[in-house]
Structure formats: structure tokens, C-alpha cells
């Protein structure tokens, strides 16, 4: 068969796609267990960091134990969405996994609020695909540290409870600095973080009312 004929080209492409596709799939399946373990470890480490838990060692078991000893976990379903909610046993600080669309792709993280939901205790990011060196700086300590102690202005409109970037009053207690060169990421973060806070507040309110009616909650 001539190498220039459409049939040869088609056959060649199908064969090469099948061979290399199988190769990638095999490597993927061979490492699947490791990937799942890594993912869990990453999540546990983020939970320990965001709740500021002391961990004895750096092994996966140490992180798991720190979480089991200090954190209670609950899944709350509100309007068809299930929220992963964590509560620190001693302080009552409450954290949940938030997510939303950043500049490029989905950003997810854990935010911890004080027990009365009045202020942010800490925030850490689990996953994002923002531009390295620009939007990806959301996970750097200088940025996340700003959120510690930020008041949530519940009396403000939904999109202005936490402000990332410029505000009419620069010293406002509900404001953090945006990232230079990553304005879109900062705006997106502010948008979905505020919307997540609003929905979470409704979800936790409904859940508390429901559990109080049914039985005494271990969280109360």
C-alpha cells in the first residue's frame, strides 16, 4: 500500500493511537493506588494545616490520627449539594470545602470559620490550575495568612462580605489584598468565596434546625 494513500494514513493513525493510548492507560492503572493515597494525604495535610493541628511526624498515619483526635466530620446535604464539614472539637471552629471557577479552572480549598461564623480563622487551597507565578500565588502563605481573623461582613450584600482587592475603605476589617498580576483570579476568588459562604450559612442553619428536631447533635 502506498504511504500517501488515505487508507494507509488512516490505518497508521488508528494503530499508533491504539498502541500509545494503551501504554498511557496501563501506566495510569499501575499507579492508580498511589495516586489515591497521595490525594488523601494531601487532603489530610491541608486539613491539619488549616485547623493548625499539631502532628506527630510526617507519615500519612500521623496526619490521619491528628484529624481523628481533633476533628469531627459531617456531610451536610443542602439543595442537592453535599458539603464536607469539619469541626474542631476543642474550639468549635468550623471548616468546609469550598470550590468555584477561577480564571482557568476549578479552585477548591478549605476555609475555617469561628464557631459563630463571624470571622475567618484560616484558609488553605486544595487544588487549582491558575497561572504559575501569577494566580497560582493564592496558595502562598503571604496571601492565605491575610485571611486569618478577617471579619465576614454578613450585613453587607452577598458579594461584598469578604473583599479581595481594592475597597472604598482600605483598612476595612473584611478586606485582603489581591495578587498583583492576577486580578482575574482574585476577582473570581472573591466572587465564589462569598457565594459559597452565603450558601454554607444557609446549609448549616437548616442542618442545625433539622438535627435539633431529630436528636441531640454531637456538635451542639
Amino acid at each position: 500500500m502506498k504511504k500517501t494513500s488515505p487508507a494507509y494514513i488512516l490505518g497508521f493513525m488508528i494503530t499508533i493511537c491504539a498502541v500509545f493510548g494503551t501504554g498511557i492507560a496501563s501506566v495510569h492503572y499501575a499507579t492508580l493506588d498511589m495516586l489515591i493515597k497521595n490525594e488523601k494525604l494531601h487532603k489530610n495535610r491541608t486539613i491539619c494545616r488549616v485547623f493548625n493541628l499539631s502532628v506527630a511526624g510526617a507519615s500519612a498515619d500521623a496526619f490521619q490520627k491528628a484529624i481523628e483526635d481533633n476533628i469531627t466530620y459531617e456531610q451536610i446535604t443542602y439543595q442537592g449539594r453535599t458539603w464536607d464539614v469539619y469541626k474542631r472539637k476543642d474550639t468549635g471552629n468550623i471548616g468546609f470545602i469550598f470550590s468555584g471557577t477561577g480564571f482557568w479552572d476549578r479552585i477548591s480549598g478549605i476555609i475555617v470559620l469561628s464557631a459563630d461564623l463571624s470571622k475567618v480563622v484560616n484558609i488553605q487551597f486544595l487544588d487549582h490550575k491558575e497561572t504559575p507565578g501569577l494566580g497560582a500565588r493564592i496558595e502562598e502563605a503571604w496571601f492565605t495568612d491575610q485571611f486569618k481573623g478577617v471579619l465576614i461582613a454578613w450585613e453587607q450584600p452577598v458579594d461584598k462580605r469578604i473583599i479581595v482587592g481594592p475597597a472604598p475603605i482600605p483598612s476595612a476589617k473584611n478586606r485582603v489584598d489581591a495578587i498583583t498580576g492576577a486580578t482575574q483570579t482574585s476577582i473570581a476568588l472573591m466572587r465564589f468565596l462569598n457565594s459559597e459562604l452565603e450558601t454554607f450559612r444557609k446549609a448549616i442553619k437548616e442542618w442545625k434546625e433539622k438535627t435539633m428536631l431529630e436528636m441531640p447533635s454531637p456538635w451542639e
Binding site: 504511504k3 501506566v27 495516586l35 497521595n38
Partner: peptide
């Protein structure tokens, strides 16, 4: 490799190896 589609084939082969490297580093 047919000459007319050689660049596509090269990118495909390169992409496969990169994905394998990516999976290995990720794991």
C-alpha cells in the same frame, strides 16, 4: 510515518511520553 502527517504523529508520540512522565511524577 507518512510525510504529510509526520508532525501530527511526532506531537502524538511526544504527548504520550509527557503524559507518562506526568503520571509518574504525580504518583
Amino acid at each position: 510515518i507518512p510525510k504529510r502527517i509526520r508532525m501530527i504523529v511526532q506531537v502524538l508520540i511526544i504527548a504520550c511520553y509527557v503524559m507518562i512522565v506526568d503520571i509518574i511524577i504525580k504518583a
